[in-house]
Design a protein around this nucleic acid. Sequence first.
DNA 1: ATTAAAAATGCAACTTCATTGCACGTTTTA
DNA 2: TAAAACGTGCAATGAAGTTGCATTTTTAAT
Lengths: 136, 136
Amino acid sequence: MKKVEEKLEQKEIRPTAMRMLVLETLRNQKAAISLQDLEIEFEKADRITLYRTLKTFQEKGLIHSIADGTGITKYALCEEGCKCAPEDMHVHFFCNRCEDTFCLPKFKIPKVSLPKGFVTLETNLLVKGTCANCTH
Amino acid sequence: MKKVEEKLEQKEIRPTAMRMLVLETLRNQKAAISLQDLEIEFEKADRITLYRTLKTFQEKGLIHSIADGTGITKYALCEEGCKCAPEDMHVHFFCNRCEDTFCLPKFKIPKVSLPKGFVTLETNLLVKGTCANCTH
DNA sequence: ATTAAAAATGCAACTTCATTGCACGTTTTA
DNA sequence: TAAAACGTGCAATGAAGTTGCATTTTTAAT
Ligand SMILES: [Mn+2]
Ligand SMILES: [Mn+2]
Ligand SMILES: [Zn+2]
Ligand SMILES: [Zn+2]
């Protein structure tokens, strides 16, 4: 695993203290995280700085956002080599029980057939249900 | 086409004047509509009443909501016989050009394979691109 | 090293969309 | 025809995201 500092520089993001902490958090997280999650994790940090940290990360292609239907945007690290292009997109899963949102990068989105004249540029697939941790 | 009044009663919604007008609008619309759209269409009507009209329609299974990534919830009539169950769900399409959101009820969502332990209860598929009206 | 420019941060204010409370009017039912 | 249930309208509130600007920190130039 590359050091957080190197990872940031690779994406042309200056490695400030805050950014390194946030990236570290994103790495340790199994589920996607929200701005709120970061606010809780970094109580002393400013909400807006966290907000802009996520925004920068996204603009630089380090993370991607996920709309899981809760109305709260979640974020997760992009896979190594991800360009956030259509072919990089994968299934997202929202667990109704633990309310965690997961990237399933191994599960690509199938090609969707559309009516004549419709051109696909991007596809988002969100599955809701019960996650592996919550089924027993 | 069933009269709007009958349609409402069939879904156990009392056919008030406002509700009949809104249903009529929903029927005439090719694209999904937002609360804002209704506000513009019915300038004299109260915003909250329109809001609650949509809410009631949805709760009674007359319409379904669509999250198209714009942050503005869109609504569209359910198909005849729709129970809003997983098997009723279809593809939604957002056109980046005209910014209209369409139901594609003829295009069902393919079964998605998931990791072991994940149970699917609901699937949402949103395709973004250019719609038939905007490709020429 | 010193200074100027650029970038990041922190605080406050604001926007947008959604939602709730409550009084009042209308419809339904007993 | 009275009581209850329901619908409507106006105001207020909530939640999430976004912007402006002053201050601090970092970087680059002299
Ligand atoms: Mn993802
Ligand atoms: Mn639809
Ligand atoms: Zn779960
Ligand atoms: Zn279009």
